[in-house]
Every structure is written in C-alpha cells, then in structure tokens.
Computed example of a mutant assay.
Amino acid sequence: MYEQLKIYCTHIVPLTDQELDLIETHFDPVTIKKKGFLLEEGKACPFIVFIAKGIIRHFHTKDGIEKTCDISFENSWVTDFESFNNSTASKMNLQALEETTAFVIRKEALLNLYKACSKYETLGRLMAEQVAQRATGIAMSLSSEKPAERFNNLIKNQPDLLQKVPQKYIANFLGISPESLSRIRSRMLPNRKS
C-alpha cells in the first residue's frame, strides 16, 4: 500500500529499508471521495499530504466566487503551508476532483519523523522547495503569459488534464472564462495533432 510513496521518497533521497519502514508508522492512508474535501477554508491545516492517485483542486472563495489556485495530480505534495506552519485558519480549500488516495502526515508525526531520521528533513526541505517553485511558476505565468500560452504549457505538462478536470476549473485556473477556453482549445488542439 505504501509502495508508491516509498518509491517517490527514495527517488528524492536515498533511504535504507529500515528508514523506509518509518513511512508506515508516520503516514496514514486516506481515501477522499469525488468532490470530498481534504481541507476546508476556515479550518487549520495540521497535515501535509502526498497524492498517490487522484486529483486535488486548490481554491479559495472571494465574494462568493470560487478561484482555482492550482490543480495537483499524483506524486504531488499538498498542504496550506501558512496554516500548517502557524496553526492558523486556512484560506483555501483542497477538494478531490475524482476519488483520491493519499498519505497524510500530521505535524507532530512529521516532527517525530525528522527526529527519527534526518534524511526526512532533507526530503521535507526539497518537497517544500518544489511546492514553492510551482507557486512561483504559476504566479509568473499569470502575470506574463497570454491565456493561450498558459493553456499550452498546462496541457504539455499534464496531457490528460482535459479528460480528467472539468473545463470550468481549468478556465478558472487560467484566469479566463470557459467560453474563452473553448475558443483557445479549438484553435490550438488541431495544431497539436499535426
């Protein structure tokens, strides 16, 4: 059951079998049903999650309108770092777009894992750097690229995105209307097939 997480971790940091066994005593497997919430805004986020299978949409609500900030797929880490680090109310929601299998590590278990094996501190730092780089990339894309460029980069990095994620969430993530996304798709996708 933990095999995918163990493979991922050893790909990032070399770990012995004994060090890998610590995963099973510190992470808890969870299944989130489609449209179920891993985290809801207003609640503290006491965990970091590894997505083994499925899709998680990150969004917040402003003036009653949902704003998609990111969409995470398998072999990704998700959390609300601000809430996790400061034990404050989360400003975002983490919602499964399909049935999702994940592994959760709570803050206390994470600190115990760091004490048990310093290699996990390195893994934690590298994971946090990846999350920060992704957030920076999204911010730069939104500020400097045209919607068509953002869409092209999105489907280049996640080719099955269009089959797995509703168009309204993709459009929202790109900062455009679903109608604009339809126009971009019809212009670009025939070009990608040739």
Rank of each mutant, 00 (worst) to 15 (best):
S141K: 06
F173C: 05
K91N: 10
W77V: 00
S186Q: 14
L111T: 05
L5C: 05
E40V: 13
E19K: 06
G42Q: 10
E66Q: 12
P46C: 08
I184C: 07
L154T: 05
G124C: 05
E99D: 15
T10Q: 15
P46D: 09
H58C: 13
V49D: 05
S143A: 15
T31C: 11
K62N: 10
K168F: 12
K119Y: 05
L161C: 10
S90E: 06
I12F: 09
K91R: 14
K107R: 14
V131I: 15
I184G: 02
S83F: 05
G137V: 06
S144C: 06
I32Q: 02
I7H: 14
S87W: 09
V104H: 04
A52F: 04
H58R: 15
L111G: 02
L126W: 09
A139E: 13
P166Q: 06
L39F: 06
K115M: 10
N172H: 01
L189Y: 04
T61Y: 07
I105G: 01
A135W: 10
P14S: 13
A135V: 08
E3G: 04
L110R: 02
R57T: 05
G54I: 04
S186E: 15
K34G: 09
L161R: 00
T10E: 15
T10A: 12
L94T: 00
Q133G: 08
S87D: 15
L22S: 01
N152G: 07
L161E: 01
T16K: 12
S177K: 13
K164A: 07
S87N: 14
